[in-house]
Structures are given as structure tokens and as C-alpha cells.
Amino acid sequence: MTPDELRAFCLDFNDATEEFPFGPDVSVFKVAGKLFALSWLESEPLRVNLKCDPDDAVRLREEHPAIAPGYHMNKRHWNTVSVGELPDRMVRELVEDSYDLVVAGLPKAVRLRLDRP
């Protein structure tokens, strides 16, 4: 997955936006104002921080050397994923899981507006 593909995939979700609050090198992807992905799109290797269920986060780190505790994030809820070291399908699933976790924490009215259960 290339940086452009990662950006396009993140922005394809309902109400997803890209912001640069930490400078031009760090893309922050949000839904309804809440962070679901953070990436250094120009980094080698390409990495992205993603929200994750705490139990799944530990399991994923144990099973995949390309997944580490979230860099500069709450290590219990966030993972840093080295994108090129995992199958694209898995990266997409992890991004979607992160988006869904954030949406699940939004007020019901916002979730309904996003058409996500």
C-alpha cells in the first residue's frame, strides 16, 4: 500500500477528514472531529497509528513484528503499524476497525448521521 492509497482509503470513510495539527509531515485522519488514524505519509517505512481494542492490540503485537505499541499514543489503545510489512487487506481491516471503534464512541445522533451502527 502506497501513501496515496492509505490517504485515499482513510478519506473514503463517511465524514473522514485529514488535518495537519502537528505540522505538514503528519496526517491526522478524523471522523466527527475524533482521531482514528495518524500517519507519517512520507516516512520509510510507511507507518500509521491506529486505534485498537486493548485485547486485540496485545494479540496483534505478539503475532506481527510489524505492529508495535502506538508511538506517542496511549499504548493500551493504539498500535503503530508498519504498512509495507503487512498484507494490504490486513492494513485496510485495521484502519476500518480503528474507524469503527471511534464511531462507536460517538453520540448516537452522530452515529446515525454517519449511517454506521
Rank of each mutant, 00 (worst) to 15 (best):
P54Y: 10
T17C: 09
L112R: 13
L60M: 09
L6Y: 11
W78M: 12
R89I: 11
N74P: 08
F20N: 08
V110F: 02
S43Y: 01
S98K: 10
S43T: 00
R7I: 02
A66I: 15
A37L: 03
L94P: 04
N74G: 08
E18S: 06
W78C: 12
P117D: 09
V91T: 11
H64L: 07
V48G: 00
D88T: 15
K108W: 02
D53F: 11
R111N: 06
G23E: 09
L46W: 12
P65K: 11
E85W: 05
P3Y: 12
Y71G: 06
R7G: 07
E19P: 07
E85D: 15
E96P: 05
G105F: 06
F13H: 06
A37Y: 04
P117N: 07
W78V: 13
C10P: 08
V48Y: 03
K108R: 12
E63I: 04
K108Y: 03
L114N: 00
D25K: 13
F20S: 05
A68K: 12
V58T: 13
L112I: 13
F36Q: 09
E5L: 12
L41G: 06
N74D: 11
L38W: 15
E5C: 05
N74T: 07
G23V: 02
R113H: 11
P65D: 12
H72K: 14
D97W: 02
S82T: 15
V83Y: 13
L6K: 05
V103H: 08
P45F: 00
M90I: 10
P65T: 06
V26P: 04
T2I: 03
M90A: 14
F9K: 08
E19Q: 13
R111H: 01
S82V: 11
R89N: 14
L114M: 03
L106R: 03
R92S: 06
L35H: 14
P65M: 00
V58D: 11
H77V: 02
V48D: 01
E96Y: 01
E44W: 03
T80I: 07
W78Q: 08
R76L: 11
T2N: 15
